[in-house]
Design a protein around this nucleic acid. Structure first.
Lengths: 189, 189
DNA sequence: GCATGGTGAGACATTGATGTCTCACTTGAG
DNA sequence: CTCAAGTGAGACATCAATGTCTCACCATGC
């Protein structure tokens, strides 16, 4: 019955996501306070700031996986899976964006997870190419790169109040596939 | 004749760009050392780390302006100006990327410059719409958002060795205008 | 030569975050 | 009830970065 009183570790993790999303430079003391937990308890569960951030990053990846899986349940088309994942992942920016300010590239576990994500994305993209969603000649690496950054752009767009969640998702997907070109920019051939 | 021995302030600024591009968390001591300058001298020219970063950010904006202006000299077409600016700005990522890890949004001077850049970009985009480069119905704010992030994506792509500078610029521009869609993704209407 | 301004080197105090430790308290299992 | 585990609060030591100050040195201009 720990649903009534969440385990301290989970409380710390939740508080860390909250506090750091507000102010990426916050101290461990602030995180412990938000969690309603003593600073010592935080150190009982995490070796230090680095360890905590590492844990948050791995959880963030899990959450993205979960959101993508939920959005793609029962979807066969790789292109449609990419489109739904794009839409599903946008709201996670609020919770995860602060991780982009942390130096995570040195951590092997995180790097391995990033590699896995990247690999899976590229497989989906290649499959979507076979569907005709992307042109075969377009480099898969670039499609993946553009996909990631357009997700970020969509999140920022929503945060800035320039678009709703679904509008931003629609615009990002459209940009990726058919572009924003007008009359003067017809697709060649 | 201070071209032989650059003024200490400039040496510090150059060193700061170098050191921080390598390791965004570097201390002022490391920056002063790289500049071949005493730590006290650094404090004689900059009130503190915040002041230094602020200065670097303003210089970075100047450099982007200069690169864009140089690339667009004699260009009349707004669309072409956007395309050339996109290409010209990509290499600056090596020097400027670390600023994306700094909290600059609170500084009024920087915010004002960002606003100016954003405004100019949007004016160019609107003009490009009239040329037919972008569809009139596409929100200008989104085009600007996508433009910025695709520049970043292009820089990362070059850094990762996935594309050359001009290939990345070409891919980013193509993504923005006609998209990456294949046979199954013809432009509607 | 001489004065002056800027500099390098280093000492020093401060500050904020961090990590460790102790002790009293609570809670749940037995 | 009793005990053990986990916790909160706070004291304490450490550490790195920062900001300040002093002093000797060197260049430049006079």
């Amino acid at each position: 019955m720990q649903s009534l009183r969440p385990t301290p570790k989970d409380a710390i993790i939740d508080a860390a996501f909250d506090v750091l999303a507000d102010a990426p430079g916050s101290s461990l003391a602030e995180i412990a306070a938000r969690a309603g937990v003593g600073r010592a308890t935080l150190h009982r569960h995490f070796a230090g700031r680095e360890d905590l951030i590492r844990t948050l990053a791995l959880i963030a990846i899990e959450e993205m996986d979960a959101a993508a899986d939920a959005a793609c349940a029962g979807v066969d088309s790789p292109g449609e899976a990419l489109r739904r994942t794009l839409e599903a992942v946008i709201p996670l920016g609020d919770r995860h964006w602060f991780l982009s300010r942390e130096p995570l590239e040195n951590d092997p576990a995180i790097a391995a997870e990033f590699d896995r994500l990247m690999r899976e994305t590229r497989e989906l993209i290649d499959a979507a190419k076979d569907e005709g969603v992307f042109e075969q000649a377009a480099p898969t690496a670039w499609i993946a790169q553009a996909y990631d950054h357009l997700v970020f752009a969509a999140w920022e767009s929503v945060k800035a109040g320039e678009a709703t969640h679904s509008q931003a998702a629609e615009l990002a997907w459209r940009t990726l596939t058919i572009g924003l070109g007008g009359a003067g920019m017809e697709k060649p051939k």
